Amino acid sequence: MNAQFVERKSKDRGHVNHDWLDAHHTLSFASYFDHKFKSFGALKAMNENIVQPNAGFGTHPHREFEIFSYIISGELQHKDSIGNIEILKPGNIQFTSCGTGITHSEYNVHPTLPVHFLQVWVKPDKSNLKPRYQTMTFDKFSKTNKLVHIISPVDYHDNSTIGINTDFHAYASLLEPSYKVVHTVQGTEKPRKVYIHLMNTGGKLNINERVILQKGDGVFVTDVKRGDEIVFESIGDEVVEFVVLDLA
Rank of each mutant, 00 (worst) to 15 (best):
L113S: 15
V109R: 15
D34L: 03
V122Q: 02
I71C: 05
Y107D: 04
Y179E: 14
D237W: 05
K140F: 13
P61T: 09
S234L: 01
Y32M: 05
K180Q: 12
Q119C: 14
V185T: 08
L27P: 00
P153D: 02
V6K: 09
V6E: 10
V115I: 10
F168H: 05
E48L: 00
K11C: 11
F220R: 10
K180A: 12
L245G: 06
I150Y: 04
I102N: 01
H157T: 13
E209D: 15
P90K: 09
F232M: 07
N128G: 07
E86P: 03
E75S: 13
G41F: 04
V120F: 04
D125W: 03
I164K: 03
G101V: 10
I150D: 00
E48Y: 09
H15E: 12
H78E: 03
S152T: 12
I212P: 03
L205A: 01
L21N: 07
Y107V: 12
M46E: 00
Y179N: 15
F68I: 02
N159C: 11
K180N: 12
T59H: 00
F168R: 04
D12H: 07
G203R: 06
C98Q: 03
E241K: 05
V181Y: 15
I67M: 04
P177W: 04
M1K: 01
L175K: 08
H18W: 10
H18I: 11
G216V: 07
L198K: 09
D12M: 10
Y171L: 15
S160M: 11
F37V: 08
L21W: 09
L247W: 01
V6Y: 03
L27Q: 04
N128P: 09
L175V: 10
N49P: 09
F117W: 06
S160N: 13
I87G: 04
D125M: 11
H197R: 00
K193H: 10
T96A: 01
H157G: 14
E86T: 08
Q4V: 08
V221A: 00
I50W: 01
A248W: 02
I67L: 13
K190H: 13
V231T: 14
G101W: 14
E233R: 08
H169M: 00
H78G: 07
L21Y: 03
D139W: 14
T161P: 03
I151T: 04
N145L: 09
S152L: 14
P90W: 06
H183L: 07
K89Y: 08
E238D: 15
T222H: 00
V51A: 13
K123L: 12
Y195K: 02
Q4W: 05
D19P: 03
K193T: 01
R226H: 14
L213R: 01
Q94H: 07
M136S: 12
F232G: 03
G216F: 02
N47F: 06
V219R: 01
Q214C: 09
G74P: 01
A23C: 15
E241Q: 12
Q52H: 14
P111M: 08
L43F: 11
V185Y: 00
D125V: 07
G91M: 12
K180W: 01
H110Q: 10
A55D: 03
K9N: 13
R63I: 06
G101Q: 12
A55P: 01
F68S: 02
N47G: 09
P191V: 00
H25L: 05
I150C: 08
Q214V: 15
D125Q: 13
K44E: 10
F141P: 02
K143V: 08
K130P: 04
T96W: 01
G91V: 12
F5R: 01
